Simulated assay, not measured.
Amino acid sequence: MSRSHGIPVIDAWVQPWLPSTVAKMPERNFTLADRMAHGARLRTGLPLEALIDEMDANGIVKAICSAGPLIPNEDVVDAVRRYPDRLIGVASVNPWSVDGVMPAVHELRRLVSDFGFKGLKLEPFILDKVPTEPQWYPLYAACADLDITLQVQVGGTGPSTYTSETGRPGHIDRIAIDFPELRIVAGHIGWPWTEEMIAVAAKHPNVWIDTSAHLPKYYPPHFTHFLRTYGRRKCIWASDWPILTFEAALDGLAELELAPEVAQLFLSDNAARAFALLP
Rank of each mutant, 00 (worst) to 15 (best):
S2P: 03
S2W: 07
R3V: 08
G6M: 08
I7P: 02
P8S: 14
Q15M: 14
W17K: 01
K24N: 12
E27I: 05
N29S: 03
N29F: 10
L32Q: 09
R35T: 09
R41N: 14
R41I: 02
T44D: 08
E49S: 13
L51I: 08
I52G: 03
I52K: 15
I64Y: 03
C65V: 05
C65G: 07
N73E: 03
V77I: 14
A79H: 10
D85M: 04
D85W: 10
I88N: 10
A91S: 13
V98G: 15
G100R: 14
M102P: 00
A104V: 09
R110M: 06
L111R: 07
V112N: 11
S113A: 14
F117V: 04
L120C: 06
P124Q: 00
L139T: 09
L139M: 06
A142V: 03
D145K: 06
L146E: 15
D147S: 05
D147P: 00
D147F: 13
I148N: 12
G156S: 15
S160A: 14
T166L: 06
G167R: 12
D173V: 05
A176E: 03
A176M: 13
F179N: 04
L182H: 04
A186I: 01
G187S: 09
H188F: 08
I189C: 10
W191Q: 07
P192A: 09
E196Y: 01
A199I: 00
V200E: 01
A202F: 04
I209T: 11
D210G: 04
A213M: 05
H214G: 01
P216G: 13
K217M: 15
Y219C: 05
F226R: 01
F226P: 08
L227Y: 07
L227F: 04
Y230F: 09
R232E: 04
K234L: 02
I236T: 02
W237P: 03
S239W: 15
W241A: 11
P242V: 03
I243G: 13
L253P: 01
L256D: 07
L256E: 05
P260I: 08
A263R: 07
Q264H: 06
L265K: 06
N270K: 02
A274E: 15
A276W: 09
L277F: 07
